[in-house]
Computed example of a mutant assay.
Amino acid sequence: MAKKTFAPIDSGTLEGLAKILGHTDHGLTGTELSKFIPEGGLIDLDASNTKWKRLYNSFADFQNRTNTSNHILRFINISIRPTRFIGQNEKFEFIRGELNKQLSFIGLQLNESGIFNPVEISKTISEAEIRVNRFKSKLTYRNIHPKIYEYCNSELIAENYFHSVFEAVKSIAEEIRKKTDLTLDGSELIDKAFSVNTPLLKINSLETETEKSEQKGFSNLIKGVFGMFRNTTAHAPKVVWTVSEDEALDIMTTISLIHKKLDKSVN
């Protein structure tokens, strides 16, 4: 069977791929480039250049000579093979996600096994972003509070629902401590911060019985979230306590509501 020939990649996408793979912080090292460029069937034209430019020049040279992108894709396969990232799943998923944003513009996606799958070509940046990370895009659609992204962005990128929930719930206690200067945790923190008689934080004026009930209800809501989600994820292994995408979305929406209430609370 004849080997499939892949069309050349446009220069903008090619540059984007090179910048991801040659990124100073999360990309390949210079030593790795020296190993994988020839292994991928490319020519290392300028080993003294910056990493991404070194890669881009190798990519562009191959396309100019062959009018195909086969060995560029082979380079990605070799350098981002999953077995190289054992114990570094978060890094692997981050790089894979960033690469897939670029690859979606040429109708390809690198799956978690390190194999290219055909996908519908993205026409816009937002379309590429949404396709790569469905979970994060669904949170954005729900207008989730930005604190959630601040505390668990890497988990969201990897679509790790279990640890996303754990980190998001922990963000509630941390924000309460910041607003009150308390060093407590769990129920003690909540009782002290949202006491009806001597509150450190108030979500309303506490002048009527209805407002006092709302304060108590909010306090109990946070305790319930801690008990059901934070304590469970802290003590139960992921294989025992599973979190589906739909469940994670609902939990995150509840946590977002709590953060929005905290924003409006007064000392």
Results as ranks from 00 to 15, higher is better:
residue 8 P to E: 10
residue 9 I to T: 06
residue 9 I to S: 05
residue 10 D to I: 00
residue 21 L to I: 08
residue 27 G to L: 05
residue 31 T to V: 11
residue 32 E to S: 10
residue 32 E to I: 09
residue 33 L to A: 00
residue 34 S to D: 15
residue 36 F to E: 04
residue 41 G to S: 09
residue 43 I to L: 13
residue 44 D to M: 09
residue 47 A to Y: 12
residue 49 N to D: 15
residue 51 K to R: 15
residue 53 K to A: 10
residue 53 K to M: 12
residue 54 R to E: 11
residue 58 S to V: 01
residue 59 F to Q: 10
residue 61 D to S: 10
residue 70 N to P: 00
residue 75 F to T: 01
residue 79 S to V: 07
residue 83 T to M: 12
residue 85 F to V: 10
residue 85 F to D: 12
residue 92 F to L: 15
residue 97 G to T: 11
residue 97 G to F: 06
residue 101 K to W: 09
residue 105 F to H: 13
residue 107 G to V: 01
residue 110 L to H: 06
residue 111 N to K: 11
residue 114 G to T: 01
residue 130 I to R: 10
residue 131 R to N: 13
residue 133 N to C: 05
residue 135 F to N: 09
residue 137 S to P: 02
residue 138 K to E: 13
residue 140 T to A: 14
residue 141 Y to L: 13
residue 141 Y to H: 13
residue 151 Y to R: 04
residue 152 C to E: 04
residue 153 N to F: 12
residue 154 S to W: 02
residue 155 E to T: 03
residue 157 I to R: 04
residue 157 I to Q: 01
residue 160 N to Y: 04
residue 163 H to E: 13
residue 172 I to G: 07
residue 175 E to V: 04
residue 176 I to K: 05
residue 178 K to Q: 05
residue 179 K to S: 04
residue 181 D to N: 14
residue 184 L to V: 07
residue 186 G to Q: 00
residue 187 S to R: 02
residue 190 I to M: 05
residue 191 D to E: 09
residue 193 A to N: 04
residue 194 F to V: 05
residue 195 S to T: 00
residue 203 I to Y: 11
residue 210 T to S: 15
residue 210 T to R: 15
residue 210 T to C: 12
residue 212 K to T: 03
residue 213 S to Q: 12
residue 213 S to V: 02
residue 213 S to K: 15
residue 214 E to F: 06
residue 216 K to L: 00
residue 219 S to R: 14
residue 230 R to N: 03
residue 231 N to D: 13
residue 232 T to S: 08
residue 232 T to W: 09
residue 233 T to V: 03
residue 234 A to G: 07
residue 235 H to C: 08
residue 236 A to M: 15
residue 238 K to L: 02
residue 241 W to C: 15
residue 241 W to I: 12
residue 243 V to W: 08
residue 244 S to I: 06
residue 246 D to T: 14
residue 246 D to S: 15
residue 246 D to C: 10
residue 249 L to Y: 07
residue 251 I to V: 07
residue 252 M to W: 07
residue 253 T to P: 06
residue 259 H to Y: 02
residue 261 K to W: 11
residue 265 S to I: 06
